[in-house]
Amino acid sequence: RSFTPGMGYVALSRLRSLSGLYLRGFNTMALQLHPEIFDFDLALRRRSDLLAAETEDLLVDNDTTNETASAVDVDPLDLDLFAQLKAWRRDQARAEGVPAYVIAHDMTLAEIAMNVPQDSTSLLRIKGMGTTRVARYGEAIIAVILHHLNPPPAHNSLFG
């Protein structure tokens, strides 16, 4: 018997299990979203998408003293490989219509650029690269790495 939009959602969100749940007096108002909340959510999503599209990823400076930098300064970071991985991630994120961090975080790409794994087993050892992410993106990441390590020969011929 909800009398305002969302009351049913709030009540259901407090459940800890479905055991013993019985819905009575359920009406159309119970799960409706308040129109102002819907508009606000839509505006936030649009702003977030715009910000994600406009924001460049930052490379962590190894000379800083913050905690994230200390996680990156174990091995030298291959900046060229890091840039190639970020370009791949950007293209993949655009193709999937998701923010880049959903594909992989900067710290994960930095660790890949430091350790340069060349197979799925080695890629699984990278923090942030679980079995699901490796199954989904591992082949493409390894292709970026192998292309970086073995670039095609430069074509300098004037005739071909």
Rank of each mutant, 00 (worst) to 15 (best):
R1Y: 04
F3W: 07
M7T: 00
M7S: 00
Y9G: 07
Y9E: 00
A11N: 07
L12K: 02
S13R: 15
S13N: 14
R14Y: 04
L15S: 02
R16A: 02
R16H: 08
S17C: 00
G20R: 12
Y22V: 15
Y22A: 11
L23E: 09
L23C: 12
R24I: 09
F26T: 06
F26L: 14
F26R: 07
N27M: 04
N27C: 11
T28Y: 08
M29I: 11
A30V: 02
A30N: 10
L31M: 14
Q32S: 06
L33V: 09
H34C: 03
E36P: 01
F38P: 02
F38L: 13
D39E: 14
D39M: 06
D39W: 03
F40W: 15
A43K: 13
L44E: 06
R45F: 09
R46I: 09
D49I: 13
D49H: 12
L50R: 11
L50Q: 12
L51Y: 11
E54Y: 08
D57V: 06
V60A: 06
N62C: 12
T65W: 04
T65S: 14
T65E: 08
N66K: 01
S70I: 11
S70T: 13
V72Q: 13
V72N: 10
D75W: 15
D75Q: 15
P76W: 05
D80R: 15
D80I: 15
F82P: 02
A83L: 09
L85F: 04
L85S: 04
K86W: 02
K86I: 07
A87F: 04
A87V: 04
W88F: 14
W88S: 05
R89M: 06
R89K: 10
R90I: 08
D91I: 01
A93F: 12
A95T: 10
G97W: 06
A100D: 10
Y101F: 15
Y101G: 00
I103V: 15
D106N: 15
M107T: 08
M107S: 12
M107Q: 12
M107R: 14
A110K: 10
E111V: 13
V116F: 07
Q118L: 07
Q118M: 09
S120M: 11
T121R: 15
T121W: 08
T121Q: 13
S122W: 09
I126W: 04
G128N: 00
G130C: 06
G130T: 03
T132Y: 12
A135G: 13
A135E: 10
A135Y: 02
Y137L: 11
A140N: 11
I141P: 03
I141A: 04
I142K: 02
I142V: 06
A143P: 04
V144Q: 02
V144C: 01
L146C: 08
H147Q: 14
N150S: 06
N150C: 01
P151S: 04
P152T: 08
H155G: 04
S157I: 08
